[in-house]
Design a binder for these strands. Sequence first.
RNA 1: GGCCACGUGGCGGAGUGGUUACGUAGCGGACUGCAAAUCCGCGUACCCCGGUUCAAUUCCGGGCGUGGCCUCCA
Length: 469
Amino acid sequence: MALKLYNTLTRQKAEFVPIDPSNVRMYVCGPTVYDYAHIGNARPVIVFDVLFRLLRHIYRPDHVTYVRNITDVDDKINARAARDYPGLPLNEAIRKVTEATENQFHADIAALGVLPPTYEPRATEYIRRKDGREDMVSLIEALVKRRHAYVAEDHVLFDVGSMSDYGRLSNRTLEEMEAGARVEVAPYKKGPMDFVLWKPSKPGEPAWPSPSGIKTPGRPGWHIECSAMAGALLGPVFDIHGGGIDLTFPHHENEIAQSRCAHGTSKMANVWMHNGFLQVEGEKMSKSLGNFVTIHELLTDGWPGEVLRFNMLRTHYRQPIDWTKKGLEESQKILTGWFAHEGLDTDDRTSLPRDVIEALEDDLNTPKAIAELHGYAAAKDFKNLGAALGFLGFDGATLRQADARAVETAQSVASTVEPLIIARLEARKRKDFAESDRIRDELAKMGIALKDTKNKETGEIETTWEIAR
RNA sequence: GGCCACGUGGCGGAGUGGUUACGUAGCGGACUGCAAAUCCGCGUACCCCGGUUCAAUUCCGGGCGUGGCCUCCA
């Protein structure tokens, strides 16, 4: 079976045909680094990591180029820097915010079993480049030269009227957009839907020499960043562009407009993929509801990164997810059950099961793939189970870390717990069950769960214990 | 209001024009002094209304519901 992907551009699932099978190219919009990444941010990172792994499997690892950017220039970053470091010069404060946030992001997603992309460009490195290769300024100047953009009051604006099929990705016409517009239109705009490519910086804000003869130093608009980084690293036309469904409009629509009009191409990427949104306990995640769940929080609460990853992949990437504690508990139970089997080898891929690959080849049907895993587990086919888990990015490491932490905690209470267990076994031996149950209840109150097993050789009853979650 | 996606059992979720999903929770049984763990077994589903069809959860139309987006971010 061939790889099939759903394409937002055509609203259909179609066979994926790479432009160049020896270099399959994918771009995914990465985080804006101003705050902890939340669990909704984690979704595209995980989903496209699975696609990256699949592409590497199909086309060979060195034939896939995956770019996921870091946006480190943005109004939200400026605001956060001013708030958190009021004493510092803004630019210094910004550097502190972006560096810390970027490091946190990398630590978080490493726990989620995410492979590093081939390139991870920072937006600020692609504003003006010394080597003369494509960057934001050169793209903007090309757009002005080709009369797709104009200068007005030190801004450069993209003229959406200059592009006949603007709106194709989000499937709406200019008239519809204008009718739905609910924001005041700046007076210097030619058309109400025209968007900013470059804007002047206020004093103290990050600033770069402006393009197109503008004297005031400025900074790039949001959309031009991705066009520049994708163009510079993947070329004017590439295979797959991904991101969250909320980015379809305006971000991706505008990326397409910029890249196509600057390069004079009929498309920017062949396949546009969008992952669905995420709710938390049935509610939209929002600051006002106070239910913003960060990856960092979940990890520090003790959820192994792999459980978060598994929980994400139990739902198809285009479906909405309701992110719940109950779901996490279920995910953890399944995963720990599988990894409890001795001899599970996630590194051995000699028998990578075809059914799992075929499920993934069908527009990344991870729930189906997971269903196959349940089948292997039920059939005690640990070779396939291990291979498939490893392929999907699960090696048990974060589960073992969680175990190790549990063992550490257990050791700290062992001196109190173990005499009680011995006392209970003695009570049982003399059939004083009231006393043995009393001890068990006492331990339960301390969060200790007991398990009695019969030693097959001696016939003795033995008790093991663990700290209940 | 416009555009888009989705609607399967308590929950997650696969799949199909007529046949068991599966997982988790629940229930029953085995084991146990009783539990826990484990093993075995069981149950309830395809949003509504039309249409096509011998037959529709599965195809078509309409409706209802849920979620997302509707500019340079508040």
